[in-house]
Design a protein around this nucleic acid. Structure first.
Lengths: 234, 234
DNA sequence: TTTCATGGTCTAAGAAATAGACCAATTGAA
DNA sequence: TTCAATTGGTCTATTTCTTAGACCATGAAA
């Protein structure tokens, strides 16, 4: 029985590059106003020609994810924080239900990853997790916090030693595109940091159930944030 | 911070067609010895030219997923059951750990789908689920049982109304490629059928916790099967 | 034997991507 | 002010992938 025969959608090389960069911006790995490598370097890393990379940059520019300046010290820069927040809010308000579904998916898979990582994490995994936690401490603003949290969760996925879980978390984070929360309600950033630290410690001592508890705490905060945002968006 | 800069991998159109068909064979949706539509029809459904489709068929033929015969009543046929079982076993024995990871991933996401589907399934979803259950009853052999189970689980994913969960289940099933179990140990096929029916009934009466229980029963059987196969493979 | 649905082959054309050279703008150091 | 270096912008020739369509070869069934 042939099932769900839909037209195949060949992704052009420049389209893949667009996705790759857009996902990193959504996940918060690329900071606002951050400068990307020069075209010649980027095309080299992606394994595509410069012409093709430039097509990708043009698309991202059109969608206002980046701006491009030329001359020495020029290059492609991620859009500024305000604009990114605006893009994120627009996306959230266009399909608030979709955002809830993504969080649902992340909840399930991150919880599983936390449980498994407690038993399987290696020392290299712990190192990445600690570095991410340190970044949360030294973060000066919302984008830096978001970046550190994304790095932590990606490291958690890898620490589970399950490539499909890791991929699921990566996809979920890339799909989410949460706006930076300028003014958090009553120190929820502090709560989140505490829970991340609890999770880190649980992973260090291979305590699976404590890991799940800490992860669940984080999800409570995430759900609260999502509810707040979808309410504001509506 | 630019993260994980790997070369982009543009998928050629024929490569996508290969994946699509291979996934359906892995998941058991395409039965052994089943005949695919004629090239002109298939290329039309995929939205690619006949030449490109033929490239895909050539790849699948090389990997022994299909055989191609010409003349009237000819066409592309899925390989016979023995050969498919052999391919599945080879894959399983090459990376038994990978198969366990896939099952891990499916366990998590199917459980979540079962819980959510209990609250969200529509009548169309129930219809698909019942049809799949009926197919299990009338199945005459292992491939038909596997096909019906795959259809049930895909329907479950859709019934959860969460596209990411549905996609995760689809990916997991396509990745798994379990060999057909010719001789099951002491009627575990009967146990599985019973659990599927319990799940269906729980979904019908919107009982989330009963759905989870039934799903968990199925996972116990799946884990037992996986353990048996990886042991045999080793 | 004939029919005809089906795979097999060929050609001409177009679309996408590549490598590499060269131009244009901008900055900062001399 | 001038110049060198860096970076984006543009152009060309070439290769690879894909397409549309025509026509040939095979083989089962009428």
């Amino acid at each position: 029985m042939l099932w769900g025969l839909r037209p195949v959608e060949p992704q052009a090389a420049h389209g893949l590059a667009v996705d790759l960069l857009r996902r990193q911006i959504h996940a918060g790995l690329l900071l606002p106003a951050e400068r990307l490598p020069a075209e010649r370097q980027l095309s080299d890393k992606f394994g595509i020609s410069r012409v093709t990379l430039r097509e990708a940059l043009r698309v991202l520019e059109t969608h206002q994810y980046i701006t491009v300046r030329r001359g020495a010290q020029g290059g492609a820069f991620v859009t500024d924080e305000d604009r990114l927040t605006q893009l994120a809010r627009r996306r959230m308000s266009r399909a608030p239900a979709a955002a809830m579904r993504v969080v649902e998916f992340l909840t399930v898979n991150q919880l599983a990853a936390a449980r498994l990582a407690a038993a399987r994490r290696g020392t290299a995994d712990l190192k990445r997790l600690r570095q991410a936690t340190d970044m949360m401490h030294s973060a000066l603003n919302a984008p830096q916090r978001k970046q550190a949290e994304a790095l932590f969760l990606l490291a958690l996925g890898d620490a589970s030693q399950n490539p499909l879980l890791a991929r699921a978390i990566e996809d979920g984070l890339a799909e989410l595109f949460l706006p930076f929360e300028g003014n958090l309600p009553d120190g929820s950033a502090v709560d989140a940091l505490k829970s991340f630290e609890n999770l880190l410690r649980a992973l260090e001592r291979e305590d699976a159930s404590a890991s799940e508890v800490a992860m669940a705490e984080l999800h409570v905060l995430l759900w609260a944030a999502i509810r707040r945002m979808t309410r504001n968006a509506a």
